[in-house]
Amino acid sequence: MKDCYLGIDIGSISTKGAIIDEYYQVLDSCYLETKGNPINAVKEVLSELKIPDGYHLHGIGTTGSARKLIGLLLGANVIKNEITAHAVATMTYHPEVKTILEIGGQDSKVIQIQNHMIRDYAMNTLCAAGTGAFLSSQAKRLGMDVKDFGALALTSQNPTNIAARCTVFAESDLVHKAQIGYPKEDIVAGLCKSVVLNYLNNVCKGKKLEAPIIFQGGVSKNEGVLKYFKEVLKEDVLVDPNGHLMGAIGVAILSSKNPRKEEYTLNLSDVAFKTQGKECHDCSNRCELLYIYRNQELLDIWGSKCGK
């Protein structure tokens, strides 16, 4: 019997699952939309993933914005933030990489690596301009699937300029450009370019991006954005075929390194999880409390400021 480890990355837009063996090879993986319901998404991920014969699941790690909730529900042995997870996975597969560009559904970050260590990182601050959420909302406006964006952007000869600073500005720019008759591919290409420029201006802010550079996160699947990254940075930019799974793989690797190992199963379909929000009125803080149940049994209560 060999050991294997599961990593789950529950992001704002998509949920990713990956099973790896002790040599960090991916055995099975899965990519789904979260649709605002992380518990259901994780259940679906678990039902789609299969543990190959001859393997035992010995660790679960969770990452992404719902990592705490899912980690608690699954009894995960590692719960880590996505920045560390991404860096760990990338350093395992691409030890030569010095810069990681990552654009996800709601956040974008740059991680700089030196001597197999994170040297510095930066993340977008307040808003989600120039991330996956921005692209998919613009795709909807243009009546397209966001998956076709990249291919269409590549056909454009001269991309139009679109302000990417803020989604609202970009939208009015986009509507304006469409109304005065710009072809769709030029607008889409302009959008992709604006994502790149926004990212470099707002996240990287004058950091020196040293080659080799790797581009990850859901948006790395978009060839248009990739093309403009290469153009603007004047460097080759790598994309891993598992680039969108890196968070899940990273946390699975961390889970395999954790000495606390238990026997897990993937069978969760008959376990009912329930969460309930309540407001506490004991003081004027009025904390929003979240009660988490597994099969009627109270697991934990979150959100209190006083620790009551």
């Binding site: 914005s65 880590k80 933030n81 996505e82 920045i83 560390t84 956040d107 260590m117 994170i118 040297r119 510095d120 990182y121 930066a122 993340m123 601050t125 307040l126 929003e288």
Partner: peptide, 27 residues
């Protein structure tokens, strides 16, 4: 660099803090 405003959710703040602290430990 952290910018504080009225947030009802601490998650974004904690992610950044955790990652920063992980990084300091690794360094």
């Amino acid at each position: 660099f952290l910018s504080m405003d009225m947030h009802t959710s601490k998650v974004g703040f904690l992610t950044r803090m955790e990652a920063f602290c992980d990084m300091l430990e690794m360094r």
